[in-house]
Simulated scan of single mutants.
Amino acid sequence: MKIQEVIVVEGRDDTAKIKQAVDADTIETNGSAIDEPTLERIKHAQAKRGVIIFTDPDFPGERIRRIVQQQIPGCKHAFMPKDEAKGSNGLGVEHATKQAIREALESVYELRQTSFQPIEWRPYLLEYGLVGGAHAKPRREHLGERLKIGYANAKQLEKRLNMFQITVDEFESVMDEILKEERQQS
């Protein structure tokens, strides 16, 4: 599988693992301390070939994703569920299987060029039990996996649902499936 865009990753172990799974070029941020020359390389790559941000599903990875997205709008996003990125000594893309990496890169989010109007998500998050309560965190994890937007806390989830232009119908359809599965398990 050949990837046209340049993939932004955190480190060289991520690059090595991605190159085992797909034919792609990467730019390494060398952790969450992204310097200006690295941001300039990413900006140049975005202008020439496009960029896919593919960081670890943890706080530092999300911080890097946020910094790059703010500095270089229009990047695509690939997400790895936490359970597919767990290794014996940590959490990260470098611990994922080749198949999990390919699946994440096949499900890249590209922002649609439409007149999408941001949605006030708070009532929906409350209605579906995604804020507070014992089931909120696992439900957000399942929702993030199914929508391919990664795990987020409630505040981040609202932003991400709008950023990736998720419609209410898409959201409710996935949440209905999650709730149905919960009822079947109890």
Rank of each mutant, 00 (worst) to 15 (best):
I3G: 04
Q4L: 12
Q4Y: 14
E5S: 03
V8H: 06
V8D: 05
V9C: 02
V9T: 06
R12H: 14
R12E: 14
D14H: 13
D14Q: 11
A16D: 14
A16P: 02
K17M: 12
K17R: 15
Q20A: 12
V22L: 15
D25G: 02
T26N: 09
I27N: 00
E28K: 06
T29H: 04
G31H: 08
G31Q: 07
G31I: 07
G31P: 03
S32E: 11
S32V: 15
A33V: 03
I34E: 01
D35N: 15
D35G: 05
D35L: 03
E40I: 04
E40W: 02
H44T: 10
A45N: 00
K48E: 14
R49W: 00
R49Q: 10
I52S: 00
F59E: 12
E62Q: 14
E62D: 14
E62C: 10
R63I: 10
R63S: 07
I64M: 06
R66D: 12
I67N: 01
I67M: 10
V68E: 01
Q69D: 11
Q69C: 02
Q70P: 01
Q71M: 02
Q71V: 01
I72N: 05
C75G: 05
C75A: 09
K76M: 06
D83Y: 08
D83R: 09
E84M: 14
E84V: 07
S88H: 08
L91W: 02
K98V: 14
E103H: 13
E103I: 13
E103R: 14
E106R: 12
S107D: 10
Y109I: 02
Y109L: 07
E110R: 08
Q113V: 00
T114A: 08
Q117M: 10
P118T: 02
E120H: 03
E120I: 08
R122E: 11
L125I: 03
L126T: 08
L126N: 07
E127Y: 03
Y128E: 05
G129F: 07
G132M: 02
G133L: 09
G133I: 07
H135W: 12
H135T: 15
K137V: 15
P138Q: 09
P138M: 12
R140C: 05
E141C: 04
H142F: 08
H142S: 14
H142P: 00
E145H: 11
E145G: 08
L147P: 03
G150I: 12
G150D: 05
A152N: 09
N153K: 13
A154S: 15
K155H: 13
Q156D: 13
Q156E: 15
R160P: 01
R160V: 09
L161C: 10
N162E: 03
M163P: 00
F164Y: 10
Q165L: 03
I166G: 01
I166D: 05
T167C: 05
V168N: 10
D169M: 08
D169L: 05
E170H: 07
F171H: 05
F171E: 06
E172F: 04
M175A: 06
D176A: 15
E177H: 11
I178C: 08
L179Q: 12
L179P: 05
K180D: 12
E181V: 08
R183Q: 14
R183P: 04
Q184I: 09
Q184Y: 11
Q185M: 11
S186R: 14
